[in-house]
Amino acid sequence: MLGMAIAQSTRDIITLKGSAALVGEFFCYAVNSILFQRGVYPTDQFDKVKKYGLTMLVSEEERVKSYITTVTSHIGNWLETGKVQRVVLVISSIATKEVLERWNFLIQTDREVTDKGILRQKSDKEIMGEIQAIMRQITSSVTFLPNLEEPCSFELLVHTDKDFEAPNTWEDSDAKLIKKGQEVKLRSFDTKVHKIDSLVAYKLDDTDV
């Protein structure tokens, strides 16, 4: 009985490293899911994978796959420093370069964990439930987001603290904000180390006006 209790408690302990890996993985699946749902790449380039108790669609296109895995694994590593403030997925028109959609993931890091190494507790099940809810919201977002009628490209932007030293595979960028945008706040999830708030901003369909 006691052994079980210990096992239970160790399983629910969230370390900084574990939380960072979990959040990094979340970004990987979230980005894939958004690219699929928004039709940035053709649907036949995606493959079904079971994750978070859902069927997630993951790009099979080699270059897309390598971009997402590289970037999200970098983010996963950087999350351990506590210096990542937000991750933004920008979808913009290839022809006009205009930004049409921004998926914001605001990250709040518990300073006590990064600075003092304190451990937090939260059950995996609870976190999975929260992630699942966000993924469902991404899927359902197609109902209110305007159709992307033209070929689009995407990019991931990472907002970090000023003093963050990025590897030379990265470069500074502008925020790529949307002019005259509309915002919809989505759900949050919290590992007790990192709290992720999500929000989607999109360009209003001016043909409706």
């Binding site: 897309v64 932007l157 970090t160 603290d161 963050f164 990265w170 470069e171 960028s173």
Partner: peptide, 11 residues
């Protein structure tokens, strides 16, 4: 903050 973008872009 500092905004970073990965140098090699997705296709």
């Amino acid at each position: 903050s500092r905004i970073l973008a990965f140098k090699s872009k997705p296709p």
